[in-house]
Design a protein around this nucleic acid. Structure first.
Length: 597
RNA sequence: GGCCCCAUAGCUCAACUGAAUAGAGCAUUUGACUACGGAUCAAAAGGUUACAGGUUUGAAUCCUGUUGGGGUCACCA
């Protein structure tokens, strides 16, 4: 069955042609969902048609409305308000739409496109634990991947771990000096936190040294360059690059601790990757491309041996691609990895989930890849998300205002537990089951809180106010689902279950039920919309609207106490499908819905 | 300073490609369990969409300027 909006667009085009003639059928037929406060299902905006009709908006609307009712059996009526033609479809038509939704177990999921898309996200440094910013990145990367899968694409989720560099050496050095052999086992600390503590310890040490040097009369800038611990860290990096066994062993051991910690956090968040890349293995990529660019004449070499790409003609700056000593920089490496990935996986698209502070970097990356002649340069997309800010502004590790990921997850669990225990609905549930439920609700609240915001926008998190469990929240949707499941359990106990014959009766859908069918019917469109914009927020807001619609319906429509068997079965089928769509929508966001809570 | 992004109710967020009276939630005030689950529902109040112009039948949305905020401009990643 054709979608109502498509049907109306097609029929309206016919109407315009029949009424106003000519081959000049206006391409600007605007069909939209009728606003709540007006009667009707879909609305045709008549303003763009006035020149053609030569009549007032009211008369144009009337003429088209009359034609539609006369020539289209699915359309049962219309009204015109100002220039808006509000069209109603018949209840029988909507029942047909619903029956199609109900018979499709994968309703909303799009057919395979054959496209392969790589999504890179998370990409942590191995010198400190994950924080709230990483949580937004991880949740976005994960849900965008799921959303693209729902759009029929094959998705590869990858992580690029920044496991080398001076910052890693800093924690290693501090551990050597002050660690006394401390390990996660000996201290009981989670590995990533342990290593993070030594990174902080390094900075304290370094700051003290700089202060001591400036006290002796050395200018601050010079002191910052000459502090002995920094020198030692730099020396350690050189030894690492030479493969010095002692340094490499230490590096492996400490990174191992960090990975164990990260794995725990990823597991808590319900996140995994198809492949993990390590910069220690990819940081030399891209050097061949530098030579290629030089040969093509798009890069230039300075007297000191450094290589640059001049982008001033494109309104940007000159960009360094190779240092004077022949070592590569971040950009070089990204150019190389992109080429390597497109070749190895024959990618159609590559999405980088990276904060908007790197907009410039990705602009340059894309531009240079284009200049190097790669046709796929246009198929890389920087999913640039906004920072998570605190009431006092940006999170700053130096000022201790970073919201730790593990703490936050634990916190959400505690709050979920408290709330649930207060309500006391779970007294007959066993311990393990309860723990899982608290985790599900806490995570649901956290994930929804983050994902419902448009990725591009800066968002605010206030640690002083705990994340809500009422209103437009994850638990609201989880609760709605639990409620529906409760009804269905009771129905099953009465020997009633929605099935393929639930809609075969005479029952006609009420206005409220049509509204819900209409909303259900939008699900595939929402998935397409969210996918096109790489915005899981579209799905989150849709799920909320649907849940809210159900709760209103639920409040004043008896289901189990309905005496007419046909109507009862029809209602059961309807709420069953609402639950199924909620599950599918929230599944895309990585949020599970409970049977009860 | 150059370039980029942002500004919507007290607060957190919506508003498809320009469309009807700019919508939700939280907080505030009020009402609803002898009811299929009150983590719910119903209602009140809350707005010159930062400001000033412009384009359009129609602007939160597009254009110009102003103000305020953020980002970025490393031989860091």
């Amino acid at each position: 069955m054709t979608n109502p909006d498509e049907l109306l667009t097609a029929k309206a085009a016919e109407a315009v042609k029949a009424l106003y003639g000519g081959g000049a059928v206006s391409p600007s037929l605007q069909v939209q969902v009728t606003r709540k406060e007006f009667e009707g299902d879909y609305t045709l905006v008549t303003f763009p048609l006035l020149k053609m009709s030569g009549a007032s908006p009211e008369n144009t609307g009337k003429a088209i409305g009359d034609w539609l009712v006369a020539n289209c059996p699915e359309i049962s009526g219309y009204n015109v308000v100002k220039g808006f033609l509000n069209v109603s479809f018949s209840p029988a038509y909507w029942k047909g739409v619903f029956s199609e939704i109900a018979s499709n177990p994968d309703f909303g999921i799009h057919a395979p496109t054959g496209k392969t898309i790589m999504v890179e996200f998370s990409s942590p440094n191995t010198n400190k634990p994950l924080h709230l910013g990483h949580i937004r990145n991880n949740l976005l990367g994960w849900s965008v991947s799921k959303l693209l899968e729902a759009n029929g694409h094959r998705v590869l989720k990858v992580n690029l771990v920044n496991d080398r560099g001076i910052h890693i050496c800093k924690s290693m050095l501090a551990w050597l000096k002050k660690g006394n052999g401390e390990t996660p086992e000996s201290s009981g600390k989670k590995g990533d936190h342990l290593v993070g503590d030594y990174y902080v310890a390094f900075n304290d040490m370094y700051k003290a040294e700089v202060e001591a040097l400036t006290a002796e009369g050395m200018p601050k800038e010079e002191a910052e360059k000459n502090a002995p611990s920094l020198k030692e860290a730099q020396d350690m990096l050189l030894r690492w690059e030479k493969g010095d066994k002692e340094v490499v062993d230490l590096w492996k051991m400490m990174n191992g601790w960090v990975y164990e910690g990260f794995d725990k956090t990823y597991c808590d968040l319900g996140i995994s990757f198809d492949r993990t890349y390590y910069e220690s293995q990819t940081y030399l990529f891209g050097k061949a491309l530098v030579q290629k660019g030089l040969d093509m004449g798009i890069f230039e070499k300075e007297a000191d041996g450094s290589v640059w790409c001049d982008l001033t003609a494109d309104g940007l700056d000159r960009k360094l691609l190779l240092r004077g000593d022949g070592t590569s920089v971040y950009m070089t490496q990204d150019l190389g990895t992109a080429e390597q990935r497109f070749e190895e996986y024959n990618l159609d698209e590559h999405i980088y989930v990276v904060g908007n502070e790197q907009n410039y970097h990705f602009q340059v990356l894309k531009l240079i890849l284009g200049k190097l002649g790669f046709s796929w340069a246009d198929n890389i997309y920087h999913l640039s998300y906004g920072m998570v800010e605190l009431p006092q502004g940006k999170m700053k590790s130096r000022e201790g205002t970073v919201v730790d990921a593990d703490d936050l997850i634990q916190n959400m669990y505690e709050t979920a537990k408290e709330t649930s225990m207060e309500l006391g609905k779970l007294d007959d549930m066993d311990g393990k089951e309860r723990e899982d439920l608290f985790r599900m609700i806490g995570l649901g609240a956290l994930k929804y809180f983050i994902i419902k915001v448009d990725p591009k926008k800066t968002m605010l998190f206030n640690p002083a106010e705990s994340i809500d469990f009422n209103g437009n929240t994850g638990p609201f949707i989880q609760y709605t689902h639990a409620r529906i499941r409760s009804i269905l359990r009771k129905a099953a106990a009465m020997g009633l279950a929605p099935g393929s014959d639930s809609l075969s009766g005479e029952a006609e859908l009420s206005a409220k039920e049509i509204r819900m069918v209409k909303m259900l019917n939008q699900f595939p469109t929402k998935i397409a919309e969210g996918g096109a914009a790489f915005s899981p927020a579209v799905i989150a807001n849709y799920a909320y609207d649907l849940a809210k619609e159900f709760n209103q319906y639920y409040h004043d429509t008896p289901i189990l106490r309905e005496e007419n068997q046909d109507v009862l079965l029809c209602r059961l089928a309807l709420v069953d499908n609402v639950a199924a769509v909620l599950r599918r929508a929230m599944g895309i966001l990585g949020i599970s819905l409970p049977e009860r809570m």
